[in-house]
Design a binder for these strands. Structure first.
Length: 104
DNA sequence: TACTTGACAGCAT
DNA sequence: AATGCTGCCAAGT
């Protein structure tokens, strides 16, 4: 059968929704938990497809280097950073989050 | 239809 | 530490 993405997106969103407040997960770990192996790239697409008013905590997903993947300066980037800091997550040198401390 | 790009990651050099 | 290559998958050109 043909893989319909809406199902995949749902699976991904469900995983993202389980990330505890004050913690962050990486694209790779979300992909793995979703049973998608190394398809980290697919995660980005799923998050991109989220509606603006979603309650899914998409901001808790960062790249493997602990940095926000969105283009610096974009409104989404700023929104993500603001929400993370509001949850107690701090950014260190070079806008990086310490995954040893805040990683899920 | 083929090639490129993109909210990425892991390994080799 | 920095680059390059490969895996993965959808969407744009």
């Amino acid at each position: 059968m043909a893989n319909f993405e809406p199902d995949i997106n749902h699976r991904i969103w469900q995983i993202v929704a389980t990330i505890p407040q004050g913690k962050v997960a990486t694209y790779g770990s979300v992909a793995e938990k979703a049973g998608m192996g190394r398809a980290a790239r697919r995660i980005g697409h799923a998050l991109r497809d989220l509606p603006l008013d979603t309650r899914i905590p998409w901001h808790r997903v960062v790249n493997a280097q602990g940095r926000i993947a969105l283009p610096a300066g974009s409104s989404r980037h700023q929104a993500q950073r603001q929400r993370l800091e509001k949850e107690g997550i701090s950014f260190g040198r070079h806008e990086r989050i310490d995954l040893k401390q805040f990683g899920w």
